[in-house]
């Protein structure tokens, strides 16, 4: 981010500094003005009335604020959204590994089948697979959601891993083979662990995609965060739509940003581990080999 900024425009001189200050001022005013306009229209439509009270002191029935937040955070987020994620991610880790094995297999038929699987399931919407589970296979909403997420993400994650394997130096595979390992062992014990590490940013952003896609469950009547949100604002009345939708958005954004932050942290840690392994270990250890294998085991 900082590099192109320095490149795309000059270090400002006195004139440019003045001009930039004026632009900054103008755009600040415009943005604050727009924000104020939105807030004002919202205000004049009565958005800042007692409807927000539902978040700390709901007035309807015998519901308490604890009930409202329990429904959102526990029944929606934890027992709905995150449950589907927690079931789907391990399944995807296994099936994607199998698909990668098939994709680089020496058997032509296996390769062809894996190629077709990848392209077909990358090309149809997750929602269609979920509906297929509910309507055609008669599965429960949870199983259908997991099916849709698993099938699509298997294809995508396998492609990510394949790209990671392709990015490795060919010496890694050759060294493994010359040690007498079978091609499958080379793949599972040497190539994949390193591919996982190289592709970690892409893999984690795929987890974020998967997490967001659980919200498709809303459409096929799976009980997750959005379903809860809708039930809540239906129960407390039309006016509470804005508070509940905003709260749901904040929950999603917080969780997803936390996942991304975690990825960032992990990336920094791993690149640190790599350099320290290179410095500290005897030269017989292939660069990143030991740490990479360890990570591969934990990440799968």
């Amino acid at each position: 981010m900082s590099a192109p900024q320095q490149v795309l425009f000059d270090v400002p001189g006195p004139k440019a500094i003045l001009r930039d200050k004026i632009y900054t001022l103008v755009f600040s005013v415009v943005m604050v003005g727009l924000l104020a306009l939105v807030v004002y229209t919202a205000y004049s439509r009565g958005i800042f009335d007692d409807r927000w009270q539902v978040l700390w002191d709901p007035q309807k029935g015998n519901q308490t604020a604890a009930d409202v937040w329990h429904s959102l955070l526990v029944r929606g987020l934890l027992e709905g959204t995150l449950k589907a994620v927690a079931i789907a991610v391990p399944i995807v880790a296994v099936t994607a590994t199998i698909l990668v094995i098939a994709r680089v297999a020496s058997n032509g038929l296996m390769r062809a089948l894996a190629y077709i699987f990848t392209h077909v399931f990358r090309g149809i919407p997750v929602l269609l697979t979920m509906y297929f589970g509910v309507i055609a296979l008669g599965l429960s909403p949870l199983v259908s959601v997991v099916l849709g997420l698993a099938v699509y993400n298997t294809a995508v994650v396998a492609e990510i891993l394949r790209a990671g394997i392709a990015a490795l130096p060919s010496g890694q595979r050759e060294a493994g083979l010359s040690l007498g390992l079978r091609p499958l062992s080379v793949l599972l014990r040497i190539q994949l662990p390193q591919a996982v590490r190289i592709m970690l940013p892409a893999l984690v952003s795929q987890v974020v995609v998967l997490l967001k896609d659980t919200s498709l469950g809303f459409i096929i009547a799976y009980y997750e965060l959005l379903t809860v949100t809708k039930n809540d604002f239906n129960y407390f009345g039309e006016a509470t739509t804005v508070p509940f939708v905003l709260v749901a958005a904040i929950i999603y954004i917080t969780v997803n940003m936390a996942v991304s932050r975690f990825a960032h942290w992990l990336e920094g840690r791993l690149s640190g581990a790599r350099s320290s392994a290179g410095v500290g270990d005897a030269p017989v250890v292939p660069p990143g080999g030991v740490a990479g294998t360890g990570l591969g085991v934990t990440a799968h």
Binding site: T41, A42, R45, K212, L226, T229, A239, T241, V242, L246
Partner: peptide, 16 residues
């Protein structure tokens, strides 16, 4: 999530 963007547009923009 995109579903939430839909829900927001459907339920909140007119109110906001």
């Amino acid at each position: 999530p995109l579903t939430l963007v839909f829900l927001f547009l459907g339920g909140s923009t007119s109110a906001l």
